[in-house]
């Protein structure tokens, strides 16, 4: 595998655990740390940072992303208002319940129509390319939005490395589904899966995301690795990914299977195409103000000049 060394973080850069963990997390964190220490003694595994359960500052470089003039959503809001149904259907649930998730050791299996199938360790994946700061608009299908500074590199870098076969037309993402670490409420067909067309996945804006606000992702945001597809509704951006599969047919995706008329496969942000239960013409911008402003939603979430060309000749009202 291409990955060699441990991440070079100074211990002084490690955020004190108490700062980030609440009491419950401290218990889980303590248990996990003990488990980790034991693992360590047993196998001397490739180095993971000892602070894997707390947020860790990430070394980043400025990103290549279109500038966003709006003010960034406060981190506290972005990490306490999440849709991550594996941890409960209320938006406060993920923060309360995701402490159970163990993000180390973690690996991502890459299979399907690729020349270079393999299982990549998360720390190796994280260090494959420089981590960029990229501030994107994030538009939820529920008509609220945030501005979030993500940390990661273009998914295309990884795709080029694993070298899909010419027959690969789609990529499918699988989220972890582990009853020991997640609630996995009934009524859903776990694991959560999402997918992109190959040209969408190869688009430089599509971000393989490891962090936000300059540090590792919080568990409730989909740690340790997720994708961010900024011109699509948030549910397309799969969290806590354990597998990526390349295929020649359009994959079945979770919300599309649940309610196809509400959640299309493409799910490009489109103010002209209403969700069956509400208009998508506006969004509530969650920023530092107490009461969010209602602002018009932009086609492709404002990334039209970058991505509209991917869809030339398509009727976006039918392929919503």
């Amino acid at each position: 595998m291409l990955i060699g060394k441990a991440p070079e973080f100074k211990s002084s850069e490690i955020t004190p655990r108490e700062k980030f963990l609440n009491r419950r997390n401290l218990i889980f964190g303590g248990l996990a740390a003990a488990g980790l220490a034991y693992e360590w003694r047993k196998k001397m595994p490739p180095l993971y940072t000892p602070s894997v359960l707390a947020a860790t500052k990430l070394p980043t470089v400025p990103g290549k992303a279109p500038a966003v003039s709006d003010t960034v959503t406060p981190q506290g809001k972005a990490t306490s208002y999440n849709n991550f149904y594996e941890f409960g259907t209320d938006k406060a649930d993920p923060k309360a319940n995701a402490g159970k998730l163990h993000t180390r050791p973690w690996s991502v299996k890459i299979d399907g129509l690729v020349n270079n199938p393999q299982t990549i360790d998360i720390d190796a994946l994280m260090r494959y390319r420089p981590l960029e700061d990229r501030t994107y608009r994030f538009r939820c299908v529920e008509a609220w939005s945030m501005i979030i500074p993500w940390v990661g590199y273009s998914l295309s870098e990884l795709i080029k490395f694993v070298d899909p076969k010419p027959s690969a037309k789609y990529i499918e993402f699988y989220t972890l589904a582990d009853r020991k670490q997640m609630d996995l409420p009934g009524g859903f067909d776990w694991p959560y899966t999402e997918g992109l067309r190959m040209d969408e996945a190869m688009h430089p804006l599509t971000l393989l995301t490891f962090g936000s606000y300059g540090q590792t992702l919080e568990n409730q945001q989909g740690a340790p690795v997720r994708v961010i597809v900024p011109w699509k509704y948030g549910f397309k951006s799969a969290k806590s990914i354990v597998r990526m599969r390349f295929s020649d047919a359009q994959p079945q995706t979770t919300w599309n299977q649940m309610a196809a008329e509400e959640y299309g496969f493409y799910a490009n942000v489109n103010p002209a195409h209403s969700h069956p239960r509400w208009s998508q013409a506006h969004e509530r911008r969650i920023d530092s103000s107490v009461f969010p402003r209602t602002i018009p939603t932009l086609p492709f979430n404002g990334y039209g000049s970058e991505v509209a060309a991917l869809y030339t000749g398509m009727d976006l009202n039918r392929s919503y």
């Binding site: 938006k91 509530r284 969650i286 009461f291 969010p292």
Partner: peptide, 8 residues
């Protein structure tokens, strides 16, 4: 103190 998305 109306949460992250007060309207909701």
């Amino acid at each position: 103190n109306l949460g992250t998305d007060p309207v909701q």
